[in-house]
Design a protein around this nucleic acid. Structure first.
Lengths: 337, 337
DNA sequence: CTTGGCACTCGGGAACACAGAGTGCTAGAC
DNA sequence: GTCTAGCACTCTGTGTTCCCGAGTGCCAAG
């Protein structure tokens, strides 16, 4: 159905259209990519490609433009991920290495990715569920209030102010802290609920109400934030591009955590570090945009996802290369700290 | 020079232009705002206002549009801050009251403000320099690493991983923590540097290298972040508006912490809670936009600033009302926690 | 299967006219 | 003096027409 030359024509159309943003015609195509056939032949191939739904023309007597299906074929079979230059890799490495804490790692990552791809970059904070407890801290604030601080092995810190049901002296708080840490230190966050389930029963009766309150806040913290936080950068890169759905909708989606999460998509359980590319209408919630995403995290321990969002008309090979490279470096940084 | 009627004409021009986004002509003006004079008279007044530089016409035989100077006069003398409706106030209150920690307060505030004003909202994190130390925590991670956590009275938490120059046993870390807290608890952050200056000397000789390292990281934390963090929301609201400088530039500025800080401006020392309005060219770094900002924080203890950014053509009375109200509520929330 | 030729289509830009909104000016009315 | 009415003038924006050129589809010949 689609012989090699037709595929070559499709590839050429995608490449030209991505770089020029103008429908590409048979003549220009035959010239620019020495295909060794005449424009007329190219036209025949184009007709076939259009028949199959890989390309379309905005109006009669205009050049051809790839459809979502055309981009899909291009990404799957006609292109290779383009690796970054050595200079870019060095720049990434030094830039990320300068981060001082988890917040900083994420912020730097998202900015870096936006700059590299000239698209909007999206990074999900490392998921709590896969992390382990490094330390739990209880800081008395007033006699009826303590601050609960949860530190994970990914450097993430969650804190909550807890209102106690009764006055609790500092030494009892200290005791509770010791018990908590003994119980939880090094445990996976997902294991926390069952580990603390019977904890109040192992305490003196008078401490149980306070402990129960604190534990409920702790559990709440775990579920609430467990994978909600997503940040983005590079909105300015949208200014030039034109979206089917309108710039406003895209900007609105970017500020909705939930939508952003859906766009990044789920890590497929079998190959978590594979690049996911969703093109145009394949995308939930935001047709007309493409998303290139991947999981990150050290080895088998996938923490979260990151990626970029842009118009369907994007340079997929370059974008995919940048996303993959950044994911690797940030995984490395997180594993080291 | 400018009698009452001319001022009324200017006010009418600003109001009409803001609501219609079209140059306003003498006839429509005379009708819509029963000025009780004829269009011809209005034209004379307009000529005078134009002479003085308060309004201008895009081209001959178009209506008039306010200049920056015109908006300035309008804001200073012709308008009153418009208070929010009772329903809006209730909505603000309940929405902000639901916040669980400082991050959440800031996030909710910035979103709320964006939604209320339909502009881009900008909120600076409460400044560390004005806060006080509530607790310092040292958590041993490995034998050569501790995590330093600094908790302030505003609920802000800063954490850093510190690489120690030598192996330090846990009980010495615990001791150091006790000393640090005894020394710093409740102190203003700005006082920290001098308070810890001679601290190593008061410790056993063997603890001094570790203490010095930890203290240097602590001081670094204080200066680095002291007022850098600024967040924004509502970028989608820019989609409709047209900026003299181009949408792209505005979006770029929003992602630059430094520029954002400059835009929010300094809290004037005498009246910290006053509304600051910078119109168009009065604005540094981003001509063509207006910024309405104010300080927030409880009473005399101004913590930081918040505000909105939008096109010069904005509804100043409403925007000012919203900014003021949100600043008050968030101050209240922060004071209570 | 490929190629050259040819008639056809359609978008986009240039030229043009025209209606409408708005202005400035001047002379008269209060 | 100040306001008003009238009038001539100047624009922009819109709709129309026209034409060029890029690009196509199809057909017949290599």
């Amino acid at each position: 159905m689609l012989d090699d030359r037709k595929l070559a024509v499709l590839r050429a159309i995608v490449e030209d259209y991505v770089s020029t943003n103008e429908p590409v015609g048979s003549k220009a195509l035959a010239e620019r990519h020495n295909l060794k056939v005449s424009p007329a032949t190219v036209r025949n191939d184009m007709a076939a490609l259009e028949e199959e739904g890989y390309i379309t023309q905005p109006h009669t007597s205009a050049g051809r433009v790839p459809t979502d299906k055309g981009y899909r074929l291009f990404v799957d079979r006609l292109s290779q991920v383009k690796p970054l230059s050595a200079a870019e890799r060095r720049a990434i490495e030094t830039f990320l290495a300068g981060a001082v804490d988890l917040d900083d790692v994420v912020t730097r990552t998202v900015r870096l990715l936006a700059q590299l791809t000239r698209q909007v970059a999206v990074v999900q904070y490392p998921t709590l569920t896969r992390s382990t407890v490094r330390h739990v801290e209880l800081v008395p604030l007033t006699e009826r209030r303590v601050m609960l601080v949860l530190i994970t092995n990914t450097g993430r810190v969650e804190q909550r102010v807890v209102e106690l049901p009764e006055v609790v002296e500092d030494h009892r708080i200290a005791n509770l802290r010791a018990v908590l840490n003994a119980c939880l230190d090094g445990c996976g966050l997902s294991a926390v609920p069952e580990l603390v389930a019977d904890l109040p029963e192992r305490l003196p009766v008078e401490d149980r109400p306070a402990a129960a309150t604190i534990l409920s806040v702790l559990l709440e913290t775990l579920v609430e934030r467990h994978d909600e936080k997503v940040v983005f950068a590079g909105a300015a890169n949208l200014a030039g591009a034109d979206f089917a759905t309108g710039l406003r909708d895209v900007l609105e989606a970017l500020e909705e955590q939930v939508v952003l999460m859906r766009l990044l998509g789920e890590t497929s359980s079998d190959t978590p570090s594979a690049l996911t590319v969703r093109i145009g209408s394949e995308n939930p919630y935001l047709r007309g945009t493409s998303v290139v995403a991947t999981g990150y995290g050290s080895g088998d321990n996938q923490l979260a996802r990151l990626g970029v969002l842009g118009p369907t008309r994007m340079d997929y090979p370059v974008t995919m290369g940048a996303v993959r490279a950044v994911a690797r470096y940030v995984s490395q940084i997180l594993a080291a700290s």
